[in-house]
Design a protein around this nucleic acid. Structure first.
Lengths: 192, 192
DNA sequence: CCTCAAAAGTGATCTAGGTCACCCGACCTC
DNA sequence: GAGGTCGGGTGACCTAGATCACTTTTGAGG
């Protein structure tokens, strides 16, 4: 029963920081729309208006952008329990510059920005949760930036697989390369 | 009268997202401790226990880390109105891995993590403000990461000066190089 | 005005990783 | 079973930026 799993997954996530009564949680949950996507399907494409974000229940979603030379750079592999969107577009009400799409079949819970703000205002613990979540994203991105400046590809590749071993089988190497910011050729030559 | 300026600066910042009554703001402000530092002075050093963060009133503070080869990488130049700390250490209660120190004489307002959490619990608008602040940091860091992967030094240098023209006169070039993640020699050769 | 240290410039050389071209094998689908 | 596409590997080159060694400029303190 996919929807039950989704509800439980969201509950587990939010209880990391905030306690909601059952009624509060049901109310919170009622603002999320469950959606299913097929492998390869796009959720957000550059140029779209972005007014929602996604909580991953199952599967794996990549967020990425494509530069003028059609080279792809991956920002995030969103695994179950993670959140994803084009947050720049979402918060600044601009058009998407990044894309989300599904590396595998995926189930998500979708929340509009308006509903998030409404929930944050109505339920203080929800606001706390979202503050905490973004803190973690901020710290993680900062670490990644530092690693990028400081370490070579081989180190960053091993670091990534250490942190997320499941990626090794789930995600093709060319996407790993796009996350690490190197060419697939270089990644393929690492085992020397 | 430095303290008055500080109070006003903080008020301006928080009113970007949240409305506090004068009593609420005075209460909020009473948790901040004004401090002055001299050019070159350290605020946080790697290995310290970190239990507070800093709001910059005047001057410029760099946050940076030093790798095993003693090479410096700069995370942020904090200008007036910005916040700075080792957020990883602060949130995870671990020892500092990054350093803060003053590029110029500086005045700051210092807030402990405990007080921040207390204020966030007591005043919903304060929690909203900190959520918003971290959102912005997250989006900015993500943009910087993408630019790092996508653009060469020259482009990133111009982008930085475009965004913060005041850095050009305020900050020595070797620090700019440490922010861009290149050697000072390379930066100095850019004007070709 | 002199001194000393820090900031900045520059030439010569080296290297990690990019680029291009090509190959192979595992799947699909018709 | 022929063709197509996708993931992945590899050889031959090229280039942005690093590194090292040295010089010049700047500016603050006595």
């Amino acid at each position: 029963m996919p929807t039950m799993d989704a509800k439980q997954a969201l509950k587990t996530t939010i209880s990391k920081t905030s306690t909601l009564t059952d009624e509060q949680f049901d109310y919170f949950f009622s603002h999320f729309k469950p959606l299913s996507y097929k492998k390869g399907q796009a959720i957000i494409s550059a140029g779209d208006l972005v007014d929602r974000e996604y909580f991953v229940v199952s599967g794996c979603i990549k967020s990425f952008f494509i530069n003028e030379d059609l080279k792809m750079f991956i920002l995030q592999f969103a695994m179950p329990g993670w959140w994803s969107s084009d947050y720049n577009a979402l918060y600044n009400h601009t058009k998407a510059t990044i894309n989300l799409d599904c590396i595998t079949d995926a189930e998500v819970l979708c929340l509009t920005s308006d509903d998030r703000e409404k929930l944050c205002s109505e339920l203080h613990p929800v606001e706390r949760f979202f503050r905490w979540r973004t803190n973690n994203g901020y710290v993680a991105t900062q670490k990644r930036l530092m690693s990028f400046m400081n370490n070579n590809v081989k180190y960053r590749y091993e670091e990534l697989l250490n942190l997320y071993p499941e990626l090794y089988n789930m995600v093709p190497k060319n996407l790993i390369a796009a996350y690490l910011g190197v060419s697939r050729e270089t990644l393929s030559r690492l085992r020397d």
